[in-house]
Design a binder for these strands. Structure first.
Length: 434
RNA sequence: UCCGGGCUGGGGUAAUGGUAUCCUUUGGGCUUGUGGUGCCCAAGACGCGGGUUCGAUUCCCGCGCCCGGACCCA
């Protein structure tokens, strides 16, 4: 026996069926908003990630030298790849570019709840629009996907923030302040105690008085945004606040405003984000980490050598999303379903094959014996795959010109003329003949 | 990279310094004509390596994998 590689998972049919259903639901929400599917390589130049995030990042990648001497890495995220694709055809692609993709990614990091070394994400992005409606559309796709899964506003919450509000407020303080360090402290605010939090901000260069001011500002509610502008007194904060307000306003028309909450303490790994950012949280707080997140990253394409191109997107991961669905009780049932089992008794393969073929042509899931099993064993198997209807094609029935339809739920069965089955009904069952 | 808890047939378990219990499962049969009831037969386990020992599934060490957490989260 071989061990599985740490952090990699197998999905057996029952679970895979549920995963497929969830992924299809998310993708469908994106498709219906006009996002087009793209396909991307599993391997990219390691340099692309090192340039974007620093050499240290290679430690957290599956990176190696290929047989041609190239330094390559299994893709840890999609954004650099998509940026590369956009830059490569920047002139010919009509804007806005709306793309989506579901696939695995790999990171060499510690396994924890909702975090694996191989994980699946659906990336959904818009390139080429800086309008607040683009940000709002991203929020709308996210909310639609979740509600289509059966989740409600009771289950999840989008905590919406704006990178420039935090950065702008910090910049408005007197003194030499390490903005990045301060934002990291804010990100941890909920996880650590007040003293630790204050220490981190002190280390970032804030005075005790500034910490108090800053903390009070972070608590600002949706009707107090003007106070932020007033406090900072800078164009940067003013335009950031106006932009955030415009995005929230736009979500009203799209019917998803109710899922969004202003939360300035939502900092996220703000590294390449430039505007609105949001994170989806479990409303009950049972899942401690964020389910997924997204936001605006207007500088990235230019950083990849393209013309300045605004961008906004998000990427739900299925590890945490399934935790949320399970907690909320909407994870699809993990059991197989089969429409028909065509049971053969004696040498009836020709007729059984004809019936099975016709049912399959109508799109049904149909199984028939491929193991030379006895009657009882075939029924047993039909039961194990949750067959709804068993079509018994036996020599005795055929001698009378019939097949027998058996409803597996009730056990009821009835003889049906073989010549009129499957007949005109798209999906004939016992009830149609009883 | 660090901390804590685990690891016995496919799944769930029992006992044990002398090769392992029970349930379930899987395959076949009773039954070329009736599953979700029964009976019979069969298959299937001590995560891997090393050490101590006459003998290790059991005790010790290392590693692997699983669960949870720290760090990190692009």
């Amino acid at each position: 026996m071989y061990d599985r590689i740490k952090g990699f998972r197998d999905f057996y049919p029952e679970e895979m069926q549920s995963r497929r259903q969830v992924m299809d639901t998310v993708e469908s929400a994106a498709r219906r908003h006009g996002f087009r599917e793209i396909g991307t390589p599993a391997l990219e130049s390691a340099e692309m990630y090192a340039d974007k995030s620093g050499e240290e990042i290679l430690e957290e990648l599956y990176a190696f030298e290929d047989k041609g001497g190239r330094q390559v890495a299994l893709t840890p995220e999609l954004t650099p790849t998509v940026a590369r694709m956009v830059v490569a055809r920047q002139q010919e692609l009509s804007k806005p570019i709306k793309w989506m993709s579901t696939r695995p990614f790999w990171r060499y990091e510690q396994v924890q709840q909702g975090r694996f070394r191989e994980f699946y994400q659906t990336n959904i992005d818009i390139f080429g629009s800086s309008e607040p409606t683009a940000d709002a559309e991203i929020l709308a796709v996210a909310a639609t996907a979740l509600t289509d899964l059966g989740l409600t506003g009771e289950d999840f919450d989008f905590r919406v923030s704006h990178r420039d509000i935090l950065g702008g407020l910090l910049a408005s303080f007197e003194g030499d302040i390490d903005t990045e360090a301060a934002i990291r402290a804010v990100d941890k605010r909920a996880k650590i105690d007040a003293d630790e939090y204050a220490d981190l901000l002190t280390d970032a260069g804030l005075t005790t008085a500034q910490i108090d001011d800053f903390d009070a500002l972070l608590e600002t509610g949706e009707d107090g945004l003007d106070e932020l502008i007033e406090f900072a007194g800078t164009d940067r904060v003013e335009s950031a606040v106006e932009n955030l307000q415009a995005v929230l306003d736009a979500t009203v028309d799209l019917g998803v405003r109710e899922y969004c909450t202003l939360s300035l303490t939502t900092a996220r790994g703000l590294d390449y984000y430039t505007g609105v950012v949001f994170e989806c949280f479990d409303s009950t707080g049972e899942i401690s980490r964020s389910v997924f997140g997204g936001g605006r990253y207007d500088d990235l394409i230019e950083g990849f050598g393209g013309q300045p191109t605004p961008a906004v997107g998000f990427a739900p991961g299925y590890a945490t999303l399934s935790l949320l669905c399970q907690r909320a009780g909407v994870w699809p049932e993990e059991s197989l379903s089969t429409d028909y089992y065509v049971l053969q008794v004696g040498d009836t393969r020709d007729v059984a094959a004809r019936i099975a073929g016709q049912l399959r042509d109508r799109g049904h899931v149909v199984e028939s014996d491929v193991s030379g099993r006895s009657f009882g064993a075939q029924l047993d198997y039909a039961d194990s795959i949750n067959a709804e209807t068993v079509v018994i094609v036996g020599e005795q029935d055929l001698a009378d010109g019939n097949v027998t339809l058996k409803d597996m739920e009730s056990g009821d069965q009835i003889a049906v003329p073989v010549d009129s089955f499957p007949g005109g009904d798209d999906r004939p069952t016992y009830d149609d003949f009883a």
